[in-house]
Design a protein around this nucleic acid. Structure first.
Lengths: 209, 209
DNA sequence: ACTCACCTACCGAGTACTAGGTAAGTGAAC
DNA sequence: GTTCACTTACCTAGTACTCGGTAGGTGAGT
């Protein structure tokens, strides 16, 4: 009897388990923060022992990095989707982005909580988030520049400054929504902001055909 | 000999010590978060024992509330200052607010970290921050309404939505600055946003005298 | 005389992580 | 196509330490 009965084999099974653990850990970090969640908590929920966890991820920080990496893959997919659209439609995709995030409130909360926990230099995720924000600002700034080149945005706007501002608003809206979902409708808020932005970028422009 | 020589007396001395402890705890909560800071850390820095701390504040959560209360008093002072100005000048006071926050990066970081730690319902500061944001949105919305009444803001702006948006942007800018002060100049960013806002609120208005 | 700030000493329950083992699967030699 | 050395997944048990909080006392100030 060859032992390869039908199950996915050892390493494949281990990979699946790793994925499952990352999912669970992400949810728990979102609820309780990184510092507020213990390896024991994660292990219990994932149906594994603490040393079992550490076997896969090396350390608690390693687990955090795996969770962050997963989240990044997710949002990268969305970014690519965005870049596939023509520039004029990207603004209109913002509410779609909000709807998507609303479906995944856990991921959104995870991000907000982890950023706050990473403010202090030297914390496990600090460099990662610094780099990430720099990259995001650069991407948004490039988008603005191309909109200016296409003549659909005022040329007197400073792309980096506006990029910082846009990301800030989206983050801030998300935070207020996560804190108090009954008072803040994230989709409506982002839709409203998209209108603000449209007005802000174009108001005063000489009309085009 | 009446022992009231010149020292401030026992209760006064205790009050001063309380204040000192709150200051120290605020700094440490800002650096390491509430969960990431232990009573032992605070006690050591404040030159007191852990039970000494608990004598004053009852519990760790009590200490947190004292810290939050202190911060609120501080920002309330600024709010009153703002309300003393005529409405048209309030926008111009935003950069002043940023400069003030830059001086007190510790307090700003404290606020950002604590809000993130309070996202989850049931966490020690949750209700406090929910209430606080509701109040702040209401205040800003009122400001917008009065600007509309005075004819210096477009009447088609929805005050609550714009209020949420403004607070979001200011919070988000602060977060990016705290995370990466080398890349984000908070004062310049807020100045830039104040210009955006001015443009946003007034652009399209029929000119007044 | 009494209050109250603050201490020493301590507790039980976590904390991340390690040591060392077992058992199951894998790959090359034969 | 078995055999067998090797790797890998994961466990039990325990490390040294930190956590927030309590009990009960001391001693200065009022």
């Amino acid at each position: 009897m060859t032992p390869s009965r039908q199950g996915p084999g050892r390493q494949e099974r281990a990979r699946l388990r790793r994925e499952e653990i990352i999912t669970v850990a992400g949810e728990m970090f979102a609820r309780g923060g990184f510092r507020g969640t213990s390896l024991a908590d994660v292990a219990a929920r994932a149906g594994i022992t603490e040393p079992g966890l550490l076997h896969h991820f090396g350390s608690k920080a390693g687990l955090l990095l795996a969770v962050i990496e997963r989240r990044d893959l997710d949002s990268e997919a969305f970014a690519l989707e965005l870049l596939g659209m023509e520039p004029s439609g990207r603004l209109r995709a913002l509410p779609e982005f909000a709807r998507r995030n609303k479906q995944r409130a856990g991921l959104a909360k995870l991000f907000t909580v982890l950023v706050a926990e990473s403010l202090e230099p030297g914390s496990p995720g600090h460099e990662h988030f610094v780099e990430r924000y720099r990259a995001m600002r650069a991407i948004v700034a490039d988008n603005i520049r191309s909109a200016q080149a296409a003549g659909v945005a005022r040329p007197d706007i400073d792309p980096p400054a506006k990029a910082t501002e846009i990301l800030a608003t989206l983050d801030g809206l998300q935070t207020q929504w996560l804190l108090d979902p009954d008072s803040v409708d994230i989709v409506a808020a982002v839709e409203s902001y998209a209108r603000t932005l449209e007005h802000d970028l174009a108001c005063g422009l000489p009309h085009l055909t």
